[in-house]
Amino acid sequence: MTIHHLLEENSIANKFVAQLRDTSVQNDRLRFRRNIERLGEILGYELSKSLSYQQQNITTPLGKSKINLLQEEIVVCSILRAGLPLHTGLLNYFDDAENSFISAYRHHPDNDENFEILVEYLASPSLEGKILLLADPMLATGSSFVNVMGALKTMGKPKAIHLVSVIAAREGINYVSREFPENSHLWIATIDEELDEKGYIVPGLGDAGDLCFGSKLQH
């Protein structure tokens, strides 16, 4: 898997990541969602450079103009619910893309710190021969991405897989790198080194889904 780490170089994306992490800012849900959306746009732009293009002729009022345009069929798939703002950011740029939605959540069967990832809902077009952008803002253990990809196998084999996330733990990156095809890509804004005993990214930013949409009852 090829890792594309956005914050290896300084850019305006630093500001959006800082505000996502900042406890004095992140409780503004509208700004929190918008910052994830903006990072989705930036990551989508960087990702677009790796795709295939073909020259086309465009008719202007005064003549013809040649320009290279994207030739790939794109499917943007977000992991509910935290993936929705990231999905929107990607869709702002890949506005012709098809859309897929899948649920994945941490289930604590014994009401302790141990959990399993459950996938219960899937709505998707065919993925056969298409470019799959799989969006989830937090890549902690990597189990959500792996379990979701397992569920998506019934939808066909993508031409290429691009994981898109905002913050990842090194352990999760290592796990998805082992489990996904070698020619897959991870587009990540920033990388943290640790997971705590509950499997949350440290320093991370907390629960992205709750910060986007409000707290939920636990399963």
Rank of each mutant, 00 (worst) to 15 (best):
T2Q: 14
I3A: 02
H4P: 12
E8C: 13
E8T: 15
E9W: 14
S11P: 02
S11M: 06
S11L: 03
I12M: 13
N14V: 14
F16V: 03
Q19P: 04
V25K: 12
Q26N: 15
Q26M: 13
N27A: 15
N27C: 15
D28M: 14
L30H: 11
R31Y: 04
R34W: 03
E37H: 04
R38I: 10
L43G: 03
Y45Q: 13
K49W: 10
S52I: 15
S52L: 15
Q54G: 15
Q55H: 11
Q56G: 10
Q56Y: 13
I58C: 11
I58Q: 10
T60D: 04
L62E: 00
G63L: 08
N68E: 06
N68A: 09
L69P: 02
L70R: 04
L70E: 01
Q71N: 14
E72P: 10
E72S: 12
V76T: 07
C77I: 13
L80F: 11
A82P: 10
H87K: 14
L90M: 03
Y93S: 08
D96E: 11
N99G: 08
F101C: 07
H107M: 07
P109E: 05
D110K: 12
N111E: 08
N111D: 09
F115A: 07
I117D: 03
L118W: 13
E120F: 05
L127K: 02
L132C: 02
L132D: 01
A135Q: 05
M138H: 00
A140T: 07
G142I: 09
F145W: 07
F145D: 01
N147C: 07
G150V: 02
A151P: 03
L152A: 05
K153I: 00
T154D: 09
M155G: 03
P158T: 02
K159C: 10
V164S: 01
S165P: 02
V166H: 05
I167L: 15
E171R: 15
Y175S: 04
R178G: 04
W187I: 03
T190E: 11
I191T: 03
I191C: 04
E194R: 12
L195V: 10
E197P: 05
G199M: 01
I201C: 08
V202P: 12
P203H: 03
L205N: 05
G206A: 01
D207A: 04
A208T: 03
D210S: 13
C212M: 10
S215G: 05
K216A: 00
L217D: 01
Q218V: 04
